[in-house]
Each structure stands twice: as C-alpha cells, then as structure tokens.
Design a protein around this nucleic acid. Sequence first.
DNA 1: GTCACACTGTTAACCGAATCACACTGTAGA
DNA 2: TCTACAGTGTGATTCGGTTAACAGTGTGAC
Lengths: 218, 218
Amino acid sequence: MAKLDSVPAPTLRRFPNYLTLLKQHLQDGQSHISCTHIAQDLDMTAIRVRKDLEMTGVVGRPRVGYPILPLVEAIEQLLGWNEPSRAILVGAGNLGSAIIGYAPLGQMGLKIMGIFDNDAHKIGTRIQGQTVLTTEQMPEMIRNHSIDIGILTVPEKVAQEVADSMVSAGLSAIWAFTPRPITVPEGVVVERVQLAASLAVLMGRMLEEDRRVPARAG
Amino acid sequence: MAKLDSVPAPTLRRFPNYLTLLKQHLQDGQSHISCTHIAQDLDMTAIRVRKDLEMTGVVGRPRVGYPILPLVEAIEQLLGWNEPSRAILVGAGNLGSAIIGYAPLGQMGLKIMGIFDNDAHKIGTRIQGQTVLTTEQMPEMIRNHSIDIGILTVPEKVAQEVADSMVSAGLSAIWAFTPRPITVPEGVVVERVQLAASLAVLMGRMLEEDRRVPARAG
DNA sequence: GTCACACTGTTAACCGAATCACACTGTAGA
DNA sequence: TCTACAGTGTGATTCGGTTAACAGTGTGAC
Ligand SMILES: NC(=O)c1ccc[n+]([C@@H]2O[C@H](COP(=O)([O-])OP(=O)(O)OC[C@H]3O[C@@H](n4cnc5c(N)ncnc54)[C@H](O)[C@@H]3O)[C@@H](O)[C@H]2O)c1
Ligand SMILES: NC(=O)c1ccc[n+]([C@@H]2O[C@H](COP(=O)([O-])OP(=O)(O)OC[C@H]3O[C@@H](n4cnc5c(N)ncnc54)[C@H](O)[C@@H]3O)[C@@H](O)[C@H]2O)c1
C-alpha cells in the first residue's frame, strides 16, 4: 500500500525518469526489474533507487526485483498522472506555443482545455488545433470546467496580475515560466521553471571546471 | 575578494533572482541594500540571503547594507555573465525557436553564434535574423569559433548522438532540454532542464494539498 | 531437498544546506 | 559626544536527503 507520507521533492523529480525507463522495459516484455539494473541504466546508485521506490509501497522480491506494472501504476498515482488534470495556458507566445505542441504532456496527465492571450492578432487563431481565446473568458472557463492547473507563459510584467485572476477564479496550482517569483495565497501550489537558474548552474560549474584545469588557450 | 571555493548549486540557482532585483534597485538610484530588504522582496529568509551574498566576498556595512554595484559585478563574475560565452543551438524546432527568441539570454552572457538542424525544410531559413545551418557544419563552427556551450533541443532519440559530436568537436558544456539523461566524458558539464520533473513536483504537491484539505466537490 | 547468493528492507552514520543564536560594528539621531 | 539599534559576520545547531552497513529472504541451481 502506498504511503501517505509526503514524498520528498528530489524523489518526485526523479519519478519521471523511472517512469520512462519502466515503461520501456514493460514494452520489451519484461515483468520485473531490479533496482541495481535501474540504477546503472540511469547512472545513479542502487540505494537511492531503492529508497525512492520505497515511497511507492511496492515490494520487491529477492533475486527477481520489483514488478514493473504495479510500480508504474503506483508512481503515476503519486504524481496524479493516472488520470487527466485539466489545465489552461495563458500567454500564447513563443514559449507557450512550444509547450502546447509538446505531446508528451498528455502522458503526464495534463489536458490543456484552453489557450488565452490578450493580443488581438492572436485571438481566434489556432495553435495545434485549439483556438486562442481572450483573457476575459479565462475565469469563466476555470469555473465552468473546474480547471486545476494554470500554465503561465505571459511576459514577466503581467505575470502576477494574471496569476491573481487565475487564483481568484479558483485554480489550485500554477506552473509558472516567468523569471520573477509570484505570490499566491495559502493552499495554492506554485512551481516555477527557472531557466535562468539552470543556466546559472551550468555556467557556474563551467567556470569551476576551467579553474581546476587551466583552460585550453582561447 | 571573491572566494574561490565552489559555490553550492542552490546558491547558484538563487543568484539570478538577486541579480534582477539588484539591477532594478540600481536603476531606481539606490546604491546600497540590506539583506533583510532583499529577503522580504524575494520571499525568503534574511539569513539565507546573507549566506549567499557571503559567497561573493562583498562586505556589507551595519545600518546601510551591501553596496549594490559591487554585488552585481561579483555575482556576474561568479556566473560568468560579465563577458559573453559563445554558444550554438542544435534543433531549431518549437522549443529551440522559443529559446533563440528569448532576449534575456543576452544579459546572461549567452551569445548564440549558430543554429543547426538537419531538416531540409528548415536549413537556410532565418530565425530571429540568424540563418539555420546544416548539422554537418556544426563541428567546424565549434572549432573555428571556440564555442563553449551547446544548447540541445533535438528530439530525444538523437540527443545522445548529437551530444557526442558536440563533445568530440571540443565543447565544454551542454545545456540539454531532452527528457532522458545524456552521458558525456569527464570534464564536460551537462545541465538538464527537466520539464517533466518540474511538472511532477507541481502535481505531487497538488495531490498532497488535496489530501490535506478534502478537495472541493468536483 | 538444501544451498548459495542476488536482491530487498531497515537501521544507522554521514553530509551539506538551512536555520539559529549571538557577538560585533558603525551609522543615525539626540 | 554618547546612545540605541539596524544590520552584518560567524560559530553552533538542526534538518532532510544521501550513503553506508547489514540482516533477512525467497528464488534458482543442483
Ligand atoms: N521564450 C523562452 O525561451 C522563455 C524562456 C524562459 C522563460 N520565458 C518566459 O516566458 C514568458 C513568455 O515568454 P515568450 O518568449 O513566450 O514571450 P512572448 O512575448 O512570445 O509571449 C508572451 C505572450 O503573452 C501574451 N500576453 C501579454 N500580456 C498578456 C496578458 N495580460 N494576458 C494574456 N496574455 C498576455 C502576449 O500577447 C504574447 O502572446 C516570459 O515571462 C518569459 O520571461 C520564456
Ligand atoms: N516543446 C516543448 O515544450 C518541450 C518541452 C520540454 C522538452 N522538450 C524537448 O526538447 C526537444 C525538442 O522539442 P521540440 O518540441 O522543439 O521538438 P521539434 O520536433 O519541434 O524540434 C526538434 C528539431 O530538431 C531537429 N532535428 C531532428 N533530428 C536532428 C538531428 N539529428 N540534428 C539536428 N537537428 C535535428 C528537427 O528537424 C526539429 O527542427 C525534445 O527532446 C523535447 O523532448 C520540448
């Protein structure tokens, strides 16, 4: 039985990796897999894999490993990927369009029910078969279709404002791609995708590497 | 004087947040800022801010705070954002195009010197004023222009293969947007932007929240 | 049947980052 | 000049996650 304890964020972050690997092995006809095998496939330690899988409540058998199908189902349940969550996207710009067109989100339980923008040139056009609606229609759709997740890809300046109107319409989670933090009331979950943070780590590590090995002439 | 110790990744990740805030205050004409002020602006604790700023080596004064300009310069130096790093992007698809068009990357020391794809329909077209080149030309450009960073936005299937050819041409860092991990030789830095991981955290936390408060009827 | 051992489950040790507590400092104000 | 105190700097503590150590177990081999 799956634990109801809260799953650590690092583990949540690794779950998708396990999922893709497990599904692949499932398709190859395997029914069980050991954590040592998973570990070397994903370039991590077996212990960490075991600890992560422990969160699912699925028990493995010595010399056999874990049953793959129950694992997949347990992880998907912990992530809520077993049944679709209704989402909307606001800000049909460059990034927004890329996300809308990213098919794998469907496998992650994300169902984009509406796309909104406030640019007159974009409203009414179609992106991946979905018509772009005006921002004014957003609260109504959130309420009528009990939307759970708002994907925020508007310019930084209006991000807080749009987030506010999402929340007041009843959204419970926001997936924000804007560089600045946004504030929301208690109970609403915000997850930010910080591209700048990722780049900072990359370049910081790069400099360190250069510092260790006196860079090749440039 | 800036420490040469390695900066913890969590701190690196927060640096960009400080930078945007600091630059904004600088533009408002302020010369100093206290960590308590920064903390409440970014919704974090003052202690964490102080510890992070400690890495820069900049010293603050009681009742006055830290001098903003030196802080900005120190952080940019630690991130390598003070002088442009040459980069190329491979995979001029939806996501790749969005990244190319994302102006703020310029402020982060990233200079995209070339765009590559292997789709005959895309080669020769222009994205944001830059012509898309064939993948065959990539190693040559990496060598001739001593490119440091490769931005990887190709489909998952060919990601490893493209990464390999980047590395063998002499790249020292890869910014990968592909869902599966890629392996590189020692000394090459890889930073992955994992959208799925971010979504997993969002939805996992959402479920937890629902579990705590027995969700509104749906 | 029984033996070996690959693999699991669990408790303990470890480590790095976040947080705390508090002494120190030098400015602003009286 | 003196005082109060906002704000820094630092050593000590806590915490969460990772890693290690090891006992337990049931499968597969013979
Ligand atoms: N493009 C990238 O690669 C990238 C990367 C990281 C983060 N981001 C962030 O994502 C956001 C969008 O980036 P982008 O490159 O797609 O910009 P963009 O300008 O292409 O798209 C923004 C869209 O939002 C719409 N919009 C503006 N105000 C609105 C409002 N009040 N209500 C609804 N829609 C509104 C605009 O009409 C436009 O279509 C920005 O905050 C940016 O910082 C972008
Ligand atoms: N679109 C998104 O929102 C999104 C989000 C997260 C991750 N990703 C990942 O980013 C990558 C690209 O996604 P996308 O949506 O832009 O896909 P896309 O199909 O729009 O773009 C991929 C591009 O790569 C090119 N390409 C294919 N093989 C190549 C090769 N061997 N050499 C050079 N170029 C090649 C294609 O011609 C195409 O232009 C994928 O790995 C995807 O998983 C995309």
